[in-house]
Design a protein around this nucleic acid. Structure first.
Length: 431
RNA sequence: GCCGCGGUAGUAUAGCCCGGCCUAGUAUGCGGGCCUGUCGAGCCCGUGACCCGGGUUCAAAUCCCGGCCGCGGCGCCA
């Protein structure tokens, strides 16, 4: 397979004793015992030991020139060898150097010496080669695939909404302006309005795409650019889409457990078990419970990370819903309840972190107009959205989930930057 | 943005409180040497650092002020 290798580390074993193979990867480390030299090659799946004996002058010479993290192919013969890790090693006939790595490395890939957070992100590509990083991104990929598979199985289709949008749509979060042929435009903060319109055509849609927020936020849970998993479903209300979300989360955790068990072991982490249906706590109940436990909090107030952490401890739930949030705290497209105070809305919380949030949406134009005005927004700016509510917009509901936040739950990482290859935040624009 | 903590070789740290004994220690890396089964290899030799600016003092990595940068908590955040 391919020009640079015949086998991956995962495809080799003592059973291939005597086979001529070509392996490729990075020089993970070298050990020189004098008469024997060991070269450990790392590829995407694991490690391969290559052994060079003193008699082989040419390769011994090359061995000295190889530096850690250099990219090489090794042509040689597999030898079953009980003393070698994995029970086999490669006796090389030729080593092809694709790229010599400069030395010393600005970050220790082998993981012997830790690096500070800042150093890791400055030297991110080397950091990503570390075993832990590779485990994290394998898990993220398994998760993404599980999300897609579950949603496809439920009859959703995958779509894309525009990322360059006109005018500051819903107020609230700050936007990044972009130059758009002399007109005012922004990077989309959310696919919200467009995904609703698409649900008005295709019924069940989802999108996995970036969104941008120009907030001052400087926390382990916020990024200027983040991947949002968005779902919108017609002829459905918030209860229906919470069930979709439960299925997605359950599938994700199960598949990560099954398909990335090795990676979880590398990270020494167990994601929470998802037993559906998840507990649903009404917002009012959460505030009451917090109050009873000595927290100072008023009805109507948003719940902070500290509040959620406390609440999760009190009720001893790791993954749960908080439903029926105060209408005032929710955006204009959220369906209010008949009581006029609360709304058909929910957050999915893991311990103290809001992983996803959603609601039944308003599908009547008059109510949307009224709610826009109540929030000091100009309905004229929303005409591109509102006009379609004149042509049979079905009742619908949906949610949005921060992929990196889900990643924290799946990997045990403590900062969304760690589960994002090249995070963008207030401080980081490079690399 | 606010509060707290921090910035010492490529990387990670000790030293700072109580200024001089710091010619700045250790690990890892890197260069060299020894070793035919290493697998966090081992042993010997070498290499390399006090964020920037100002101040106090006979003397500053150490104390003070300002700046820059980072981390944590909070805030901001559909």
């Amino acid at each position: 397979m391919g020009r640079y290798r015949t086998h991956l580390s995962s495809e080799l074993g003592p059973g291939l004793d005597g086979a001529k193979v070509v392996v490729a990867g990075w020089v993970h480390f070298k050990r020189d015992l004098g008469g024997k030299k060991f070269l450990v090659i790392r590829d995407k799946d694991g490690f391969i030991q290559v052994v060079i004996s003193k008699e082989n002058r040419e390769l011994s010479e090359l061995f000295y020139r190889l530096t850690p993290e250099s990219a090489v192919s090794v042509i040689g013969v597999v030898k079953a060898e009980s003393r070698a890790p994995g029970g086999f090693e490669i006796v090389p006939t030729e080593i092809i150097v694709h790229s010599i790595a400069k030395t010393p490395l600005p970050l220790d890939v082998s993981g012997k010496v830790p690096a500070d957070f800042d150093t890791r992100f400055r030297e991110r590509v080397l950091d990503l080669r570390r075993e832990e990083s590779r485990a994290i991104f394998k898990i993220m990929s398994v998760a993404l695939r599980a999300i897609r598979e579950e949603l496809y199985s439920l009859g959703f289709i995958e779509v894309f909404t525009p990322k360059i949008v006109a005018a500051a749509t819903e107020g609230g979060a700050a936007l990044f302006p972009v130059a758009f042929f002399g007109r005012e435009a922004y990077l989309a903060q959310s696919p919200q309005l467009y995904k609703e319109l698409l649900a008005g055509a295709f019924e069940r849609v989802f999108e996995i795409a970036p969104a941008w927020r120009a907030e001052e936020s400087d926390t382990p849970y916020h990024l200027s650019e983040f991947i949002s998993v968005d779902v919108e479903m017609a002829y459905a209300n918030y209860e229906d889409v919470m069930e979709v979300l439960e299925r997605v989360i359950r599938r994700v955790v199960n598949e990560v457990r099954e398909r990335a068990s090795r990676e979880l072991k590398v990270l020494n982490y167990d994601p929470p078990e998802i037993r559906t249906p998840l507990k649903r706590f009404r917002y009012e109940e959460v505030v009451k419970t917090l109050g009873e436990h000595g927290e100072r909090i008023e009805l109507g107030e948003d719940l902070s990370v500290t509040h959620l952490r406390r609440f999760s401890e009190i009720v001893n739930e790791e993954v749960y819903f908080i439903v029926d949030w105060p209408d005032k705290a929710r955006p204009f497209y959220t369906m209010p309840k008949d009581d006029g105070v609360y709304s058909e809305s929910f957050d999915l919380v893991w311990k103290y972190l809001e992983i996803a949030s959603g609601s039944t949406r308003v599908h009547r134009r008059e109510l949307l107009m009224k709610r826009l005005l109540e929030r000091g927004l100009n309905p004229e700016n929303f005409e591109f959205f509102l006009k379609w509510f004149d042509y049979g917009m079905p009742p619908h509901a949906g949610w949005g989930m921060g992929l990196a936040r889900l990643g924290l739950m799946l990997t045990g990482a403590r900062n969304v930057r760690e589960v994002t290859p090249f995070p963008r935040d207030k401080k980081r624009l490079i690399p």
